[in-house]
Design a protein around this nucleic acid. Structure first.
Length: 548
DNA sequence: ATAGGGTTAG
C-alpha cells in the first residue's frame, strides 16, 4: 500500500519520504485515478513509481501500466508491458487501448491475436478496442450497452458520424436502451453533420428519459442553424451552468448575431456565475464576426479588470481578428508584436482572411509565408493567397502559388455542400452531375441566374482562378456545390420554407453574393454553414454583413 | 479496473 502523503511528496519534491512521512491513505490505484484526473503526470518522474521497492502489491504494475497508457506514454508503457512476467487480461486491455487510442489499429489487432495465442481469454472489455480496430462487430453474439457505446463513440470521434447514427438505429432495434454515454457521443456528431431530424429525435429521447444533456441540445440546434430554438431551450432549462451560457453565446456568435451575444453576456453578468475563458472567446469571436470593434475592445479589457482573467492566446486571436476584419492592419500588427505569445496559425490565418476582405496582397504575403511554415499542408491558405492575387489581377503570382501547392503535394479538397430533405441528405460536389435530378437542378440554376441578374447581380468572376474568358468563368461558377444545393432545395421543398445548406469549405465570394440575391427573388430564408460560421440570407442581406 | 461530455479563436 502506498500512502497519499508519500506520493504527494514525490510529486512535488522529487525526494524520497522519511519513515515518519509514511501515513495511511490512498492506495496506488486511487492515486493513479487522482493523477489522471488532475493531469499531473508531467510533474511526477514516471520512473519513480516503477522503482518503488515495495512490490508486494500484485496489481502495482498493472496500475502503472494503465497510467502510462492513459497518458499515451507509449515507450514507457511498452517497456513495462514487454518486461512483465505475468500478463493478465487487464494488462492486455490497457496496452491495446493505448494503441487503439493512438489510431494504430494494426498493432491493436496484432496484440489481440498475441493475447489469444497465449491463452488469455478476451472478455467484454477487450472487444470494444478490437471493434475500433476492425469491423468484426457483426460477428459478436453478446452485445451489451458498453459495446454499442464503444463502437458508436469510436465512429463519432473519427468523423464517421453517419455510421454512428446508423449504429444507433440498430442498437435501438436490437432492444438495447441508449444511455447518457450514448447521448454524449451521438449528439455532437449530429451537431457536426447538422443532422437536424435525428438530433430532434434524440432530443425527444432525452426529455422522455429525464436525462440532463441540455447544453448539448443547445449546441445541436445552434449548429443546425436554429438559434431561436436553441434560445428557447436555454430559457426553459431547469438549471443553467456557465457552459450553458457559453454555448448560447457561441451560438449567437457563429451566426453573426453579435448584439444578441453581447446582450446575453450582460444578462450573465447579473447572475452569480463567473464568466471564464470560454465565455470571452465566444463573446469576442461574436463581436469580431459582427464587426463590433468597440465592444470587443471593451470586453477584452474587462477580462482582467473585472474578472481577473489573464487573456490567453485564444482571446488575443479574437482581438487580432476583430482589428484586422475592421481593416485596422497597423493596429493588429502592433497588437501581435506586443502580445505575450508567439503568433500561431490561427492568428496569421485571421490576418490572411482579413487581407482577402480588404484586398491587401502585401500583408497577405507576409501572413501566408508564416502560415506556409506553420501548417504547410493546409490547402486553404494557398487558395486564399491565390484568390487575393487573382482578385487584384496578379494572375502570374496566383499561378505561382498554385504551383507551389503542387510541388509540396498539397491537395485541395473539392467543395462539397449538402442539404437534408425529408430525412435524406443530398450532397453535391463541385461540377458534379451524378444527382438523379441534375437536369432540373441545372435548369433551376440557369433561371435563377437570369432572375438575379435582372435585379443587379454581377458574377464575381475574380473568384475563378483560371485566367480564362469571362463566359467560361461564369460557367464554372454555376457548378459550385452551394449553388447546386440551393437549386435542389428550391425545387424539392414547398415555397417559403427556409433552406439549410452545409458546406465543407469557406463559402465562395460569388456564391455569397448570388445567394443574397436568390434569397430576395425567391423570398426564402437561406441558412448556410461553411467551415467557419453561419450565413443567414434574408431578403437580399446576409447576417455576416459581408464581413467574413 | 475497462463505454463518456460540454465551447474555444481563422
Amino acid at each position: 500500500m502506498y500512502s497519499y502523503g508519500v506520493l504527494l511528496l514525490q510529486m512535488f519534491t522529487g525526494r524520497r519520504p522519511t519513515d515518519e512521512e509514511f501515513e495511511d491513505g490512498l492506495d496506488l490505484h486511487q492515486f493513479c485515478k487522482i493523477a489522471l484526473h488532475k493531469g499531473v503526470m508531467k510533474i511526477i518522474d514516471p520512473h519513480v513509481l516503477e522503482h518503488e521497492e515495495e512490490a508486494n502489491d500484485d496489481h502495482r504494475d498493472i496500475h502503472v501500466l494503465e497510467l502510462y497508457c492513459k497518458f499515451g506514454l507509449i515507450d514507457d508503457a511498452r517497456r513495462l508491458f514487454d518486461g512483465m512476467s505475468e500478463r493478465n487480461v487487464f494488462s492486455w486491455t490497457s496496452i491495446m487501448g493505448l494503441y487503439c487510442g493512438l489510431g494504430d489499429y494494426e498493432e491493436t489487432i496484432r496484440l489481440f491475436y498475441c493475447m489469444v495465442d497465449r491463452g488469455v481469454r478476451p472478455d467484454h472489455f477487450v472487444f470494444p478496442k478490437v471493434f475500433k480496430a476492425c469491423s468484426v462487430f457483426s460477428e459478436l453474439s453478446v452485445r451489451d450497452v458498453v459495446i454499442w457505446n464503444s463502437i458508436i463513440s469510436a465512429c463519432a470521434h473519427n468523423e464517421q458520424g453517419v455510421t454512428a447514427l446508423n449504429l444507433l438505429r440498430e442498437m435501438v432495434k436490437s432492444k438495447v436502451q441508449p444511455n447518457m454515454v450514448t447521448i454524449v457521443s451521438i449528439l455532437p456528431a449530429c451537431a457536426r453533420l447538422a443532422a437536424l431530424q435525428q438530433g430532434k429525435e434524440i432530443h425527444q429521447f432525452i426529455i422522455r428519459n429525464g436525462l440532463d444533456a441540455f447544453n448539448l441540445v443547445i449546441d445541436l440546434y445552434g449548429r443546425c442553424g436554429l438559434v431561436k430554438i436553441a434560445r428557447r431551450i436555454f430559457d426553459l432549462m431547469p438549471q443553467r451552468d456557465i457552459v450553458s451560457w457559453n454555448t448560447m453565446i457561441a451560438g449567437y456568435g457563429m451566426h453573426g448575431f453579435g448584439m444578441d451575444a453581447v446582450n446575453l453576456f450582460r444578462r450573465l453578468q447579473c447572475t452569480d456565475l463567473k464568466p471564464n475563458h470560454f465565455t470571452f472567446t465566444s463573446l469576442l469571436s461574436a463581436c469580431s464576426h459582427a464587426g463590433l470593434t468597440d465592444e470587443g475592445w471593451k470586453y477584452f479589457k474587462m477580462m482582467k479588470s473585472e474578472y481577473d482573467l489573464d487573456p490567453a492566446i485564444e482571446q488575443y486571436a479574437c482581438l487580432v481578428d476583430l482589428l484586422a476584419r475592421a481593416g485596422q492592419f497597423e493596429e493588429s500588427m502592433e497588437f501581435i508584436k506586443e502580445m505575450p505569445f508567439q503568433p500561431n496559425a490561427v492568428i496569421w490565418g485571421s490576418i490572411l482572411g482579413a487581407c482577402r476582405i480588404h484586398l491587401n496582397p502585401e500583408l497577405a504575403e507576409q501572413a501566408a509565408s508564416f502560415l506556409f511554415e506553420l501548417e504547410p499542408q493546409n490547402s486553404g491558405n494557398y487558395i486564399l493567397l491565390a484568390n487575393i492575387y487573382s482578385a487584384v489581377g496578379r494572375w502570374e503570382e496566383a499561378a505561382k502559388v498554385r504551383c507551389l501547392m503542387k510541388e509540396r503535394g498539397v491537395s485541395k479538397p473539392p467543395g462539397c455542400s449538402w442539404i437534408a430533405v425529408k430525412r435524406r441528405i443530398h450532397s453535391f460536389i463541385v461540377g458534379d452531375a451524378s444527382h438523379p435530378l441534375i437536369e432540373e437542378i441545372s435548369c433551376k440554376v440557369e433561371s435563377l441566374y437570369s432572375e438575379i441578374k435582372e435585379i443587379g447581380y454581377v458574377p464575381e468572376t475574380n473568384f475563378v482562378l483560371q485566367d480564362v474568358e469571362d463566359d467560361e468563368k461564369e460557367n464554372s461558377l454555376c457548378g459550385h456545390s452551394e449553388k447546386l444545393a440551393i437549386a435542389f432545395g428550391l425545387i424539392s421543398t414547398p415555397s417559403g420554407t427556409p433552406l439549410r445548406i452545409i458546406k465543407n469549405l469557406r463559402v465562395c465570394g460569388d456564391c455569397h453574393s448570388a445567394t443574397k440575391f436568390i434569397s430576395k427573388v425567391t423570398n426564402r430564408e437561406i441558412i448556410m454553414r461553411d467551415c467557419f460560421r453561419f450565413h443567414h440570407f434574408v431578403d437580399g442581406v446576409c447576417s455576416c454583413g459581408d464581413y467574413w
